[in-house]
Structures are given as C-alpha cells and as structure tokens.
C-alpha cells in the first residue's frame, strides 16, 4: 500500500507537449480515475507512472520513494492493460503467477497466491486453460488477477473495460469495484468513459490537453464543474450552457428573469438537463423543440433557446412533438456560471 505523488511531470514528443507540468497526489488506498477524451494525455501519464515511458521532466514518488529513474520492475506496481496482455503461451495459473515467479517466490507461495487471486476473480475452474480458450471477459479477469496476485503497492489500469461489450462491461465494473475495495489497493484508472469513472472512482481527475483541469469526488464534479469543458464532458447529456447578460444580480432569458449572482456582463449559465423544468406558462424562457428521444425512464428533449442547443428532460409520457414551443425554468440552486471567454467558473456573489 502506498500513495502516489506526481510532481510537475512534463512530457514532450518533439515540439508537441503531451503533458504540461501535471501535479497529482493520490492518497493511500484511493481509487482515482483519470478521465478525459482521447489524446488528452491520460494514458501517457499512466505509462510514465508505470515507467514504460520516460518523462521529459518532473518526478514520480510512490510511497514516498522517488521512482522516477527506476525501470518498471523496480517500482512495485502492477498494471492491467487495455488489450489485457495475457500471455497466450501460458496457462491461466502461469499468467496469474507470472509476477510472483519473476520476483523469485517459491512454488508454494506462488501457488497459494495464485489460488487466492483466482478465487477472488472466480477463475479457479479455469486455472489450467490457455487464454485462447477464454472469453474476453475471462481474459480480463485473468489480467486483473495477475495484477492483484503480486499485492502491488499501486495498481494501474489502462482502459481495462474498453474491449468488452456493453453488458459485460457493466457486470465487470461492479465486480471490479467490489474486488478492489476489498483489496484496498491504491488504484489509478484511466478511462474516457465518464459513467465508468463516476461509478468506480473515489475521486476523478479530468484531463484536457495535457493538463488536469479538475479533481473532485464524482458528485461534486457533476454538480460543480470548474470549467465549461468539464461540464460538457462529464454527464450525459452534457451540461447546457446558455449565454445571458448579467446585470445587478439578474439576467433575462426571454421574458424569464433568473438570479445571476455574478459579475455584470455577458456570462454563460450552466445547467443540467434534469435541472430544467419544462412548463407551458407564459413567463418561462421559450424553447423550440427540435427532436425528442424517448429514453424509457424519461423523454430527452432537444431544442433551441437563446440561439444555442438546449437539452431538457420531460416525463416519459409528455406530449412534445417536434416544432412545438414550450417554456423552461432552471432551478436556481443548480445553476453554475462560467466566463464565456475563458470557460472558467465564475465566483458567486454572496
């Protein structure tokens, strides 16, 4: 068990800067997700922590020990790869015991550890099989068991569920969470799937263009995105951003006056689809319905208001054909405010 400290890591490929002075502290035992779109640098950061790639500058400390210049095998960590990297020429048992054997543990110790890890991931019946005889989900379990068998100080996971089909992914997600909670290993989990990050992680670090833009608990990240990017990336559908002009603590959307406890001038009002109440009364902000999509539990309404696309949720049985004008009211306590230029959240006035 150990914490991870990432201190001003820079990675440049030629003139392209993949990571810009990234700092991150992961306390012992935490499950932290690195979330971001492809190309944001999250996998590069993970591989630098693993030692598979060399940083241009900056330090990595694991459990207080500076590992920046050590090869991967001296860093006391384990990793689950995107394509599993389960060795095709070794049985399940040999795969799970690989790290232990490399470290020179005796046969009895290896066998016991393999047994425990296999048990934990329900792979005991398959110990003598070769990976070619396993399904994708089972290979995934072998990869995780192999990582847990070495009882690593730190566990790194690189999009481990992205190669599974949707149903299996959901199942594996729940299981991973349970297994890792029990193991209590410090875990760094790279993903581009925000529902995965929300569901699994204690905290999420959102990355954009080689920088960490926000680190928070999932609920806080969802409710209080610190940038427009975070609001748009986290949550489905993405947060609505409606341009308004604030003056004296108020702003108008059509006939509707909303509280705007921010500086005067043009601002963006960020509000989630489920925090817009649709209504037919005259004083509401007008919304022209373009498309409606029945989602089962509710109806997703996409329309146009104040010149931008706005998404809202209506009850599943609402009668909202395309082309029908309706009104909406944002719930004031759920609104966040952003600077339209910088995309940064604005200070609220007390």
């Amino acid at each position: 068990m150990a914490d991870i400290q990432i201190d001003r890591i820079v990675k440049a490929f030629g003139t392209v800067v993949a990571l810009e002075e990234v700092r991150l502290d992961v306390p012992d035992g935490e499950f932290l997700a690195l979330l971001g779109p492809s190309g944001c640098g999250k996998t590069t950061l993970l591989r630098i922590i693993a030692g598979l790639e060399t940083q241009t500058s900056g330090r990595v400390r694991i459990g207080g020990r500076d590992v920046s210049d050590l090869p991967p095998r001296r860093r006391a960590l384990a990793m689950v790869f995107q394509n599993y990297a389960v060795f095709p020429h070794m049985t399940v048992a040999e795969n799970i015991g690989f790290g232990l054997r490399m470290r020179g543990d005796d046969a009895a110790t290896v066998r016991a550890a393999v047994g425990r890890a296999a048990e934990l991931l329900k792979m005991t019946p398959y110990l003598d099989r070769y990976p070619s005889k396993l399904s994708g989900g089972q290979r995934q379990r072998v990869a995780v068991a192999r990582a847990l068998a070495v009882e690593p100080a730190v566990l790194l996971m690189d999009e481990p569920l992205s190669n599974l089909d949707a149903l299996l992914r959901l199942e594996m997600r729940a299981e991973l969470k349970a297994v890792l909670r029990e193991a209590g290993t410090t875990t760094l989990y790279v993903t581009h799937d925000q529902t995965e990050a929300m569901g699994l992680a204690d905290r999420i670090a959102v990355m954009e263009k080689g920088r960490i833009v926000q680190i928070d608990r999932p609920a806080a990240l969802y409710r209080h995105p610190r940038t427009r990017f975070v609001g748009g990336f986290v949550g489905t559908p993405p947060m609505n951003f409606i341009p308004v002009v604030a003056a004296g603590g108020r702003a108008m959307i059509g006939p509707l006056a909303v509280q705007a406890p921010v500086r005067d001038g043009p601002v963006l009002m960020g509000v989630r689809a489920e925090d817009l109440d649709l209504t037919d009364d005259d004083g509401a902000a007008p919304l022209m319905v373009r498309v409606t999509e029945p989602m089962g539990s509710h109806l997703l309404v996409t329309g146009e208001a104040a010149g931008v696309t706005v998404r809202a949720m209506a009850p599943a049985d609402a009668d909202l054909p395309a082309g029908r004008p309706v009104g909406f009211r944002p719930r004031p306590e759920r609104v966040v405010w952003m600077d339209p230029e910088s995309g940064q959240a604005l200070e609220m006035r007390a």
């Binding site: 030692g51 095998r73 060795f87 490399m102 070495v150």
Partner: peptide, 17 residues
C-alpha cells in the same frame, strides 16, 4: 504485440527474463 513485453516488464521481469 508490444504489450506483452511491457506487461512482463511491469510484473518484474528483467530484460533476460
């Protein structure tokens, strides 16, 4: 695939191993 060598590296294998 490069991932096999990387996995071995992460799990403690020396270059010779």
């Amino acid at each position: 695939p490069k991932e096999y060598a990387e996995a071995a590296e992460v799990f403690g294998a020396s270059p010779w191993q």
